[in-house]
Design a protein around this nucleic acid. Structure first.
Lengths: 343, 343
DNA sequence: TTCTCTACTGTGAACGCTCACAGAAGCAGC
DNA sequence: GCTGCTTCTGTGAGCGTTCACAGTAGAGAA
């Protein structure tokens, strides 16, 4: 631990120093560092002891120079910054990914593409090979970035099912349709019959699937579909508020609302309160995500839990597999109904 | 643009290829890449053309290997993950820092230290020299990480004034005391006299300063200080809610509350509503931060705007200066009163 | 002329690592 | 004995840069 002497930074020990200290060659030290195959137990131990004594840490740049890997991955978010500021789901995902990557000793480079310029700059950075792979979060449908990265041969995993990209890109998503079914069945079981829905963007698979689940349950329950009960939003709180207002105007007899995100559901609660409707007595409200917004809402939201911890872990797993040469893969994870006060 | 051919990744062009293409030597290309001093206009142009033609991008690892710099910086957040999930201020800061760094073509490594183990792992990573400097966000007072990094000689800038660390560490902060004064003066100007306060953690300078500003205005306004009007929180929504409850129990005649963060103010609003107090008619509520929580709250919060865009820009500026050899610096930025519906 | 100075250019030597290869040692089978 | 195989180890080369240094050319001064 001679390293942590206060003051300036002295020159750190190299693999050479460790080799000398352990009485072996550079090659042997390198082999120990990279899995320890074809190394005698004696040498193994001597090297490990030398590493501890010298405080050696590998120089990642020297390694990368020769291996061609950067041993770092990018987390790319192509959303307007307002959404990043508002939606806590990103933070959960971000945290999950850093954690999963940390287990592999891989740093995460944060890339926020709020504007077109930034998108271009970041795409150039990535295709230049400065990261080994990319975790891409983008609900934004017409987003060309996925296609560009795929074409450039950059390993890529998306969060949520992509649209308009061939089957060649990996993704990890929750089972949107099934989650929606669970929620709407729950609302039906409470005796609700005039169930409104605030959808996500209908040019994204997530938005479409959640609406599809809603319709399925209506028909299996013998409830007629009424298109005036359907309004669409963009996952933002404001769009939830506006959506609920339209809903109330079109169908004053609405007795439940299935909202495609917790954040929009917060907005729905605001509108309902302003309109004098009590939740859950007059109107039941169901959210989607189980983000911190669900707990922050008054009343606390009944919602569909997306397993973000598993989603992020799977994203990392699939990405690393792909970097290791495996084919792209799609992973769908189950959701869960969480009952709270709003229904 | 021969690079972006679909399919596998071919070997990228090196500085050597560019040199050959431009009819100059490696050294000249390198000089052009690094500022272009001592290069003739002719050579300059030839090199730039060759770079464009070949699609050359510098290999950062090779550069780092020789310069000893990593040309990347770490954004370290030592907070429990619940806070990261709940508080949008982190996102604003994160966005600002990535943006400011992007202008220098420096990637940001995200480091989230939610647990003690992670803190250790990350500290080891940083002191190993894998980043050139660290942007540290930590309200957590007894946090040893700043001192450790300082001792290891790692360039460091903190967000918010640090406690318990010598004057040797840089920081950028908003003028907490002045902001608090503005808010409390505003409440006084509305005729409020029984002004409660929900403080931040009192083992942090931010928490202490905002309380100090409150007391100063009371005394300049000839209002007696009543310690039953003071409760302390930890910046979380829940602590705001609990704080307001205690406040109402201790001083039912409270007619205004100055809350040291917007998130806590949201909690305060919840408690006041439950207690049947109207905001702003019965009780005025003032927040602090001007985060997205202030706009999400009902009614929208009057608050003190912290200039997060400038804070992040200054953090990056100071950090880069320090990496360049300058001494640590402290920067205090002015705040601004933003009037909305809650007062 | 010759010398000095400035502006520019090329070259070899690193930087710290991994990888391929060559070799050594031990052991079995003929 | 030789051959082949396995397990282990050391060595040289090279990854793509930058940096220090040596050198060249041209201008101006002595």
């Amino acid at each position: 631990m001679t390293m942590s002497q206060s003051g300036g930074r002295r020159k750190p020990p190299t693999i050479h120093d460790v080799a000398r200290e352990a009485g072996v060659s550079r090659g042997t030290v390198s082999r120990v560092l990279n899995g320890g195959h074809y190394v005698s137990p004696t040498a193994q131990e001597a090297v490990n002891a030398a590493i501890r004594r010298t405080g050696y840490v590998v120089n990642r740049h020297a390694r990368s120079l020769i291996t061609g890997r950067s041993d770092s991955i990018g987390f790319l978010l192509t959303e307007p910054q307002e959404r990043f500021f508002e939606d806590p789901n990103f933070n959960v995902l971000l945290r999950g990914c850093t954690q999963a990557l940390a287990a592999h000793d891989i740093p995460l480079l944060l890339m926020l593409a709020g504007t077109e310029d930034e998108r271009r700059r970041i795409t150039r950075y990535i295709t230049a090979g400065h990261v080994d792979g990319v975790l891409l979060v983008s609900s934004h449908s017409g987003d060309p970035v996925a296609e560009q990265l795929r074409e450039a041969g950059v390993p890529l995993v998306m969060c949520g099912k992509p649209i308009g990209v061939g089957s060649k890109v990996s993704y990890v998503a929750a089972d949107d349709r099934d989650g929606a079914r669970d929620m709407v069945r729950h609302l039906v079981s409470l005796g609700r019959r005039r169930i409104g829905v605030v959808t996500g963007p209908l040019d994204t698979p997530g938005g479409v699937e959640r609406l599809a689940g809603y319709r399925e349950v209506l028909s299996e329950s013998g409830i007629d579909f009424d298109e005036r009960l359907v309004v669409s939003g963009d996952y933002s709180r404001a769009s939830g508020e506006a959506g609920a207002e339209r809903l109330l105007a079109q169908c004053p007899d609405v007795d439940a609302v299935f909202v495609a995100s917790d954040l929009m559901a917060q907005g729905v609660l605001t509108s309902l309160e302003r309109a004098g409707r009590r939740v859950p007595e007059d109107v039941s409200v169901g959210g989607f995500d189980d983000s911190s917004a669900a707990l922050a809402a008054r009343p606390q939201l009944t919602t569909i839990r997306q397993p973000y911890d598993r989603i992020s872990a799977e994203m990392v797993r699939v990405l690393l597999a792909q970097i290791g040469g495996e084919d792209p893969a799609a992973v769908i994870l189950p959701t869960e109904l969480v009952k709270r006060q709003s229904t």
